[in-house]
Amino acid sequence: MSATNVDGIAGWAIDLMETLGAPGAGVAIALENLFPPLPSEVILPLAGFTASKGNMTLFDAILWTTLGSVIGALALYGIGALLGRERVVAIAAKLPLISVSDIEKTEAWFARHGKKTVFFGRMIPIFRSLISIPAGVERMPISIFTLLTTLGSLIWNTAFVMAGYLLGENWSLVEDYAGILSKAVLGIVVLAVVIFIVVRLMDRRKGKHHA
């Protein structure tokens, strides 16, 4: 298996794993957390495929990718903690269609469901990276955040690494099916944003009519 035979992100990930071994898979997944456009649905099955070829053990593939997930999540948590509530509110106040009350509602929702969100969010494409920022803003105890992130990431990573390991040369099938899931989730998110904007615009128009 050589990176020269595979293009794009897959080729980059293979090259990284061939150069660094299992830690390379961890680096790739850490970067995937920081830059969501890098798909773990490609990197994780490739780590499993690499393990099936004997370039690393299956245990090391799962261990290092999970470690990479936690490191990437902690980095985003730190960004949220550094920004803090006041800066987030100040930024939100300057954005169109966003109000301070939206932030307050989000805080209240996260206070009620934060633990579940961090755990299950690790298994939802795109969302698994973004959820670390509000966790940092809300200063979720870092020990709990790390534990939930580790457990959620371990489940997600093990499933995809094992799939790549068992499929071998056909590892790309995982990417195909996971891509459908990612598009579905993205579609739901876009729809939610559109609904939010429409409702907010309608509220503003009602406010003008009552004024």
Rank of each mutant, 00 (worst) to 15 (best):
G72V: 02
A75C: 10
S52Y: 05
G152L: 09
A47F: 05
G68K: 08
F35C: 09
M123I: 12
T150E: 10
A73R: 00
I62Q: 04
L97I: 00
G78T: 04
L147R: 10
P141G: 08
A75I: 02
T117Y: 05
L95G: 01
R139I: 03
H113Q: 12
S143R: 07
A28L: 15
M123N: 06
L58F: 15
K115Q: 08
S69E: 02
G84L: 06
L46I: 14
T50L: 10
L44C: 13
V100T: 10
A81D: 01
L74G: 01
R87S: 04
G136M: 02
A61M: 09
L151C: 08
L154G: 03
G72H: 00
A75M: 08
K115N: 10
F120Q: 08
K94V: 02
P96W: 00
I71R: 01
S153V: 11
I79Y: 00
L76G: 05
L46V: 14
I91S: 03
F35S: 04
T57F: 14
S69G: 13
N33A: 12
D60N: 14
L44I: 04
T158S: 15
E138N: 09
L83V: 04
T57Y: 12
E107S: 13
T65D: 13
I103L: 14
V27F: 05
R139S: 12
V118G: 10
V137E: 01
L34H: 03
F35H: 07
L34R: 06
E41W: 01
V137A: 08
G54Y: 14
G121L: 13
L67V: 13
G84M: 00
L95N: 03
R122C: 12
R112T: 14
L97R: 06
T50E: 08
I144L: 11
N33R: 15
I71F: 07
P134C: 09
I124M: 07
A159F: 13
I155P: 08
A28Y: 03
R139M: 10
I126W: 12
A75P: 02
F145E: 05
A73Y: 03
S40Y: 02
E104H: 09
T106W: 05
V137W: 01
S129Q: 07
I144K: 08
K105V: 10
W64R: 10
L58V: 10
L148H: 01
I155E: 06
K115W: 11
Y77A: 02
G26R: 11
I98E: 04
L83M: 09
G136H: 00
L67S: 07
M123Y: 07
P39A: 07
A81Q: 08
T117C: 15
L95M: 13
I98Y: 11
L151S: 06
E86K: 14
D102V: 00
T150R: 02
I144T: 12
L154Q: 05
V27R: 11
I155T: 07
I79D: 00
K94E: 11
E138P: 02
L44M: 14
S40K: 07
E104V: 05
K116G: 10
L76V: 08
P141S: 07
N55M: 10
I98C: 12
G26H: 06
I144E: 07
S153R: 06
A73W: 00
W64H: 12
G114L: 15
F49H: 13
E41V: 05
W64I: 05
P141K: 12
L63N: 05
G54E: 06
L63M: 13
A25K: 09
R128M: 02
L38K: 11
